[in-house]
Design a binder for these strands. Sequence first.
DNA 1: GCTAGAAAGCTAATGCTATTAGCCGCAGGC
DNA 2: GCCTGCGGCTAATAGCATTAGCTTTCTAGC
Lengths: 184, 184
Amino acid sequence: MARAALSREAVVDLAVRIVDEDGPAALTLSAVAARAGVATPSLYKHVRNLADLRELLSARVLGEMADHVGAAVLGRSGDEALRALMDAWRSYVTRHPGRYATVIQAPVAATVEPGKRLVDIGLAALRAYGLTGSEAIHAVRCLRAAAHGFSVLETAGGFGLPEKLDDTYELMFHMIVSGLRAPR
Amino acid sequence: MARAALSREAVVDLAVRIVDEDGPAALTLSAVAARAGVATPSLYKHVRNLADLRELLSARVLGEMADHVGAAVLGRSGDEALRALMDAWRSYVTRHPGRYATVIQAPVAATVEPGKRLVDIGLAALRAYGLTGSEAIHAVRCLRAAAHGFSVLETAGGFGLPEKLDDTYELMFHMIVSGLRAPR
DNA sequence: GCTAGAAAGCTAATGCTATTAGCCGCAGGC
DNA sequence: GCCTGCGGCTAATAGCATTAGCTTTCTAGC
């Protein structure tokens, strides 16, 4: 191999920093090249094109989220596990809004693997609720929808009303738990 | 006035058609100009720049959504009103995924007015639940988070699992109603 | 130690995009 | 009938992604 100054992984690292610092709109190959101290076309030796980089970045971020959320749920069960899952999701998005925004507008292709992991983590968190098969899948989807919807609300500024988002979060969590407990 | 072939409104009309047909990424001033049968710089007579057009488009779409959702809720109350609100939100997004995707990645500035209207509609839909002041705001936020989260799930393909999204939707609605009824 | 080849960089060039500057013609008010 | 401004135009600039083809440099095999 020639000078291994750059690599596929290193390029994604730089992309992460860019979306962290300047938001997803700032993710251009020029910006990455500038940070790498390299001419723009050189990046094509590591990445197919900009769309490819975006996919790799999404996969990376979703993988990180799965790690973070998975670690939080580990060793807990019942309401506590559910709480840990939602809290972890929220805290990841709060800490890395730029990364999360990238994933949202991502193509689905590269994110299926970490996506499945997140589904499994959700299923594990819900184990104590005694949901079977499809019912569990629907519940996990609701968790995902709630977590995502709330995250967008929080990072977008939530209509700018003075009410505390923490309280909204509590209500949402209450809705989820009530819905899981109450018979249909 | 000279030939009023084009106008601010007409430009936004064309933008709507573009995101409908080719998605939000296809919204460029070139594309709009091509549809208008006009040179690209001519658009600057009607619109400040691309960002401005995106803002106008977001405002338009969110206004449409408020109309659609508002009409659905009108004359209903209780669970029925809530149901109508969520159904209308979902159906709008399903019918116009491109428009909705545009709003998501919008700046907040131009969307505050229709956003407030949507909040008011939500408050009206929840009137029968006897929520006071801040509690009602939190509930509306939860509705918005749920509707948005589910919409993204639905338009993005929802992990590709075989379970019917209609059933997920029912569970989510059940969660909301349970949470609103059950005491905290 | 030498050399062949590939990996990883480079420059040049193309084409698309937004955006600005400045020009021209027509319509309506005086 | 003239003047003004609106709404179009062309030309030009600059940033971006992407491709082609060249060069350098390291490494592996001998």
